[in-house]
Design a binder for these strands. Structure first.
Length: 111
RNA sequence: CGAGAUAGCCGGAUGGUCGCAUGGAAACAUGAGGAAAGUCCGAGCACCACAGGGCAAGAGUGCAGGCUAACUACCUGUGAAGGCGACUUCAAGGAAAGUGCAACAGAAAAAUACCGCCCGCAAGGGUAAGGAUGGAAAGGCGAGGUAAGAGCUCACCCGCAAAUCGGCGACGAGGCGCGAUGUAAACCCCACUCGGUGCAAGAAAGGAGCGUGAAAUGCUGCCCGCAAGCUCCCGUUCGCUCGAACCGUAAGGCAACUUGCGGUCUAGAUAGAUGGCCAUUCAAGACAGAACUCGGCUUACAGACUAUUCUCGCAUA
RNA sequence: GGAGAAGUACCCAAGAGGCCGAAGGGGCUCCCCUGCUAAGGGAGUAGUACGAGUGAAUCGUAGCCAGGGUUCAAAUCCCUGCUUCUCCG
């Protein structure tokens, strides 16, 4: 995932948490809010998911899952993906399916 | 052959492809650990004017010698405890400097007399043999001795221990002499060490405010002395990786470690870089992710390997 | 990344070397009161595990986050972990 697409500022995160509209799947929670500077995606993996190694692994899998979808996602929004502790159990194929499912439910995926 | 002891080492490998971070014009190169962890100690570094003096308070350490930048670590010894043994473990100074505590029980918990025994008409005195209690009861046991008794005396044993000898030293041998419990991870005494805060330290740049001394502020308190700067915001750049570095080798040393020579440059992110897929292979991959950097300690951990090493047992020659 | 604090019953907690066989309050269980309920009153609740005992009464051992140590004796003193919480941009 390219650096320009990442959500960085703490203030932006809190804005999305407060104002964003939510959609969820079994393992993921997606928050969306209007963006002024193009596509921005942030990942949130709390300590409940596991230790540092498993948290890193979850983030990497999510980034890999996002990679093929980058061009399809509606670029006028900021997104935050929150991982549920159960994500630690999944493998790559499951994570890809989950990511696609959660964006499709939010209606932010164009064909 | 079996059961151990000790020391050390490794922590899946190889290739292809799509991505990420840093450096580079590009090609390309490099890219988590033995514990990166816990933050339990010790330093470097930065700021507090120099990190200065004195007194007080506080904290830590506690056998000796060595090693180190430094240490409460480490090494080699000493002593004690455990083990048949190789070996392992230990916060291991002082209890006649003083104070406190030792519940319950017991007469009594440190110089004490309830029962008993003895002297005495009695008052009172002597006594630690015997009794009961307790974790602990005034060295043990026998003989002499005595009014009854008592290391009061003696033999043997137990503990402490002077002279002297050996060792750099802890200490060991020795044994004149002595026989008033335990607790200092209770206060304390003695000896030694320590200023504080931590890279979210801080510096430069930018913005705002206060101030020229009777100040404010200056990181435990007070006193002395000293300083013209101080506080807040911002989080761009620096700090940020060449360092008490790592690898190899030689010499010295029992060892920790030191010195010489040669070689190497080996993560530097800032919502935070190592992943996905495919193939081959084996013993089928545990614990686990750098955030200023080192030296230790502690804790977690699948499995694999090494040793002219050491001990015990069995068998055979 | 760094700096601290706290763990005692189901919950809130006192205790700070022997009298702890662990105070007190809430909750829970049983009883009284009432036609019934609430309120009120009384009793019980670390009676958990293991062992002794036919069973009951009773007794022993362990147990104050976990594991060691000091002490005659530890919830309390000392070390090492674990968990939770707070502060520093």
């Amino acid at each position: 995932m390219k650096r320009e697409y990442r959500l960085k500022k703490r203030a932006a995160f809190t804005y999305v948490y407060k104002r964003g509209e939510k959609s969820a799947s079994r393992h993921l929670l997606l928050l969306c809010a209007k963006s002024g500077e193009g596509l921005k995606i942030g990942l949130s993996v709390s300590k409940k998911v596991g230790n540092a190694v498993t948290r890193n692994r979850v983030k990497r899998l999510l980034r890999e899952g996002l990679r093929p979808l980058e061009q399809k996602i509606n670029p006028s929004f900021m997104y935050v993906i929150v991982a549920h502790p159960s994500v630690a159990e999944l493998d790559y194929a499951d994570v890809c399916a989950e990511v696609e499912k959660v964006f499709r439910r939010a209606g932010k995926l164009s064909e």
